[in-house]
């Protein structure tokens, strides 16, 4: 009896792992397909019979030719500037706001926080037209200002909310002890709250990196000159110009995707904790 139960158990377990393994396999197919095609001769991509699982000769040269067929070095530089500025601005101003909303008592706090929370529900499409017109009147279209300045103005409701949740979990005794020792609110923020919130700050930095690295909606609206494009928009442009060169397009895509995967591998533990903490994503 016991033995039979065990057999059933093992069959069940095996089926379970087979199922989840199959799902994992399906999940990575697109990535596999991208890398596979990036290494192939373009004519081989059109061959379906016999089916080519992996190129017999890996063409590393696809990566250099893809990179050199468009100003990708320039795009990469532009993207890094935008991403870095956004990370800096978001870390600075969202943590400040989160601090004000969690550990300082002031008149209007609840109201302001409520308003900022509501913006999370606001469809981006509602504000994009007037936002564009405002930047246009300020003669800021085709500059990076519309893509960077918002990060220095709070850095988005999601990040403020995430950091506030985290700050609330830090015991109040620490502030009180510091205040008795004569520390002001600014010193408490810089020397107690921020150092204790490293992991939350990392989550915000990671989300900001990914959000801006991957963003194409902002750049297609605000940037016109080709030499100001980001990698995501450069990739879009590349597809328009080289629609039939699938191997080069996949090589370029692989290069743009690689930093995301690298960052994800380093920070995925923090990211997933961040989502579980707030119950949402950026």
């Amino acid at each position: 009896m016991v033995v039979r139960k065990n057999t059933a158990y093992y069959i069940k377990r095996t089926l379970f792992y087979l199922l989840i393994g199959l799902l994992a396999f399906v999940c990575v197919i697109p990535l596999y397909w991208m890398v596979r095609s990036a290494f192939m001769k373009n004519t081989d991509i059109y061959v379906m019979d016999p089916f080519i699982f992996w190129p017999s000769k890996m063409l590393w040269s696809n990566f250099t030719s893809a990179w050199n067929s468009a100003p990708f070095t320039k795009y990469a530089f532009n993207t890094i500037v935008i991403v870095a500025a956004n990370i800096l601005g978001t870390l600075l101003t969202s943590s400040m706001a989160a601090y004000a909303f969690s550990r300082v008592k002031w008149k209007g706090r609840g109201f302001c926080f409520g308003m900022i929370l509501i913006t999370m529900m606001l469809p981006g499409a509602v504000t994009i037209v007037p936002q564009f017109l405002i930047w246009r009147n300020l003669h800021m279209v085709d500059t990076y200002v519309p893509l960077i300045l918002p990060a220095f103005l709070g850095g988005g409701a999601f990040n403020i909310f995430l950091l506030r949740q985290f700050f609330l979990a830090i015991p109040n005794d620490l502030d009180e002890a510091a205040e008795i020792d004569g520390a002001g609110k600014l010193r408490i923020f810089l020397q107690i709250i921020l150092p204790l919130s490293k992991s939350a700050m990392i989550v915000v930095a990671l989300f900001t990196f990914l959000g801006n690295w991957n963003d194409f909606f902002g750049p297609i609206i605000y940037l016109n000159s080709k030499d100001k494009f980001t990698l995501a928009v450069g990739l879009l442009q590349f597809q328009g110009d080289y629609a039939t060169k699938w191997n080069l397009l996949m090589a370029a895509s692989t290069i743009v995707v690689a930093p995301c995967i690298l960052i994800y591998l380093i920070g995925q533990r923090y990211l997933i904790e961040g989502i579980s903490l707030t119950g949402m994503k950026a």
Binding site: V28, P30, L210, V233
Partner: peptide, 20 residues
């Protein structure tokens, strides 16, 4: 982590793969 991975990829790049 594996199932979450597609979420962090640039929509432009992953859309191209799906087109292919």
């Amino acid at each position: 982590s594996l199932f979450y991975l597609p979420c962090i990829l640039p929509a432009v790049a992953s859309s191209f793969v799906w087109i292919l």
